[in-house]
């Protein structure tokens, strides 16, 4: 869903990050995309080179971690794994739970190439 427009949004962030860090090039980006985020990792990887074309991130490799879905139960206090459409507490079965992992849509970190103090010209 909207992986290309999300890549365009990532690109805006990367351009700012590159500027803030005096970097020529973004080498890698690390994303966390949870199963409940509404974003499909494979489509995002396909869309990224298009959004990044001609930019500081045109050569960047895209690494996506998919965190597991986990919930915290407000009734018994336990944390347990869950699935996208069954988010009940694994311990007591109650539905008063909160998702603590699995709905992320985050740009975690980037690796970038900074210009150093010395410059040489060709």
């Amino acid at each position: 869903m909207h992986e290309l427009s999300i890549c365009q949004s990532i690109m805006q962030q990367l351009e700012q990050i590159a500027k803030d860090n005096h970097a020529d090039q973004i080498d890698s980006i690390y994303l966390q995309i949870g199963p409940l985020s509404g974003v499909e990792p494979e489509l995002l990887k396909q869309a990224f080179p298009l959004a990044a074309a001609g930019s500081c991130a045109s050569q960047a490799s895209v690494h996506i971690t998919v965190p597991p879905i986990r919930v915290h139960c407000e009734i018994c206090g336990e944390e347990s794994p869950a699935t996208a459409n069954r988010l009940l507490c694994g311990a007591c079965g109650d539905y008063h739970t909160r998702v603590i992992s699995g709905d992320e849509m985050l740009l975690n970190s980037v690796e970038l190439t900074k210009r150093s103090e010395e410059m040489s010209y060709v």
Partner: peptide, 29 residues
């Protein structure tokens, strides 16, 4: 045709750095 490498005019001494961001992907929206 949109995917084409940019040219670089200067050779620079470079270091690679990892930077932690932790921003939402839809932060502009």
């Amino acid at each position: 045709h949109l995917i084409k490498p940019g040219g670089k005019l200067h050779a620079v001494k470079q270091t690679t750095t990892a930077v932690t961001i932790l921003q939402g992907l839809l932060s502009e929206n």
